[in-house]
Every structure is written in structure tokens, then in C-alpha cells.
Simulated assay, not measured.
Amino acid sequence: MEMVIYQSFVASCATVVGLFAGGEWKGLKSEMENYEMGKASYIMNLVGSTVTWQAFSIGSMGLIMEVSSIFANAIGAVGLPIVPILAVIFFHDKMYGVKAISMVLAVWGFISYMYQHYQDDGKSKGENLNAQKDSPPDQVQEVDK
């Protein structure tokens, strides 16, 4: 948890410094007032994005701690095409070639990860069965089915 908190704190500090150093803070009020859906929607969008990113960060850290970093990366890769697909469906965004290729690669990477786990699982079950056949009868262990 501390890693997520420190990482978010440093990112927030860097963003605030960049906001004030670049003079972008002067345009925030006009940006909020010119937002098509209104001020309340603008603020809800910012708060929703913040909460969603925090949930993603904590969830990723949980996956890394409980399962593995590779699995967390695979889940992140399979989640990558979801946003563009939802943008195409709900916001009628155009699907460009680069977007389609990145989505295909993300899904391909996840399928490759799952297939590798399937192969490794089959190998380990085969090795367990061979070890069980070779061991003396008094040392036979049950193999997961």
C-alpha cells in the first residue's frame, strides 16, 4: 500500500509543479466553463478518473503481491483494448489501423500467456504422474485431479 501511496504522491507533486511552471493553471477556469457537459460533469469526470486510477493501482499491486507481476501485466494488457472498444461503441470514435493493431497485440499477448500456463500445467501434471509411478508404494502421494 505504501508503494501506491508514495507513487501517487510523487506523481501528483510532479503534475502540480508542471501545471504551475508551465502556466497552465491560468486556463483551468476557462476549460471548466467551456466543457460541453457543464461544470458538474467536468468535476465528476476528474473525480471519476482519479478514483478509477487509484483502484487500478491498488488492484495491480494486489495482483503483483498475491499472484505474480507477469499475471498483473497480462491482465493490464488484456484490459488495454477495452477502452478503445467502449469509445467506439458509446462515443462513435473512429477505429484506426494503429488502434486495431494494438488491440490485437494486447489480446494475442494475453492468449499467449494463458497458453503458456496451460502447457506448463500439463507438464507439471505429467511429471507428477511419472514421479508417482516411480516411487515405492509406501511413499505414494495423491495427485490433484
Rank of each mutant, 00 (worst) to 15 (best):
V17Y: 08
V17A: 14
V17P: 02
L19M: 11
L19Y: 11
A21V: 10
G22C: 06
E24A: 04
E24Q: 07
W25T: 01
K26C: 00
G27Q: 08
L28A: 04
K29V: 09
K29Y: 04
K29D: 01
E31G: 01
E31A: 10
N34F: 03
Y35S: 05
M37S: 12
G38I: 08
K39A: 11
A40M: 12
A40K: 13
Y42M: 04
Y42N: 06
M44V: 11
M44W: 12
N45F: 14
N45T: 13
L46Y: 09
L46S: 05
V47P: 05
V47Q: 04
G48L: 04
T50F: 15
V51H: 00
T52D: 00
W53N: 02
Q54I: 13
S57M: 12
S57L: 14
S57F: 12
I58R: 02
I58G: 00
I58N: 02
S60A: 07
S60D: 01
M61K: 12
G62K: 05
G62Y: 10
M65C: 09
S68K: 10
S68Y: 06
S69N: 02
S69F: 14
S69I: 09
F71P: 01
F71R: 04
A72H: 09
I75L: 09
I75A: 14
G76M: 10
G76K: 06
V78Y: 06
G79W: 03
G79S: 07
L80Y: 14
V83N: 03
P84K: 03
I85D: 01
L86H: 05
A87F: 06
V88A: 09
V88H: 06
I89F: 06
I89L: 11
F91Y: 13
F91N: 06
D93K: 09
M95G: 03
Y96M: 03
Y96H: 12
Y96E: 13
V98A: 11
V98N: 13
A100L: 14
A100R: 09
A100E: 03
I101R: 07
S102R: 09
S102E: 05
L105G: 11
L105M: 14
G109Y: 15
G109I: 06
F110A: 12
F110R: 10
I111A: 15
I111F: 11
S112E: 12
Y113W: 11
Y113E: 02
Y113R: 06
M114T: 14
M114I: 08
D120S: 12
D121L: 14
G122P: 13
G122A: 08
S124N: 11
S124F: 07
K125I: 15
G126S: 15
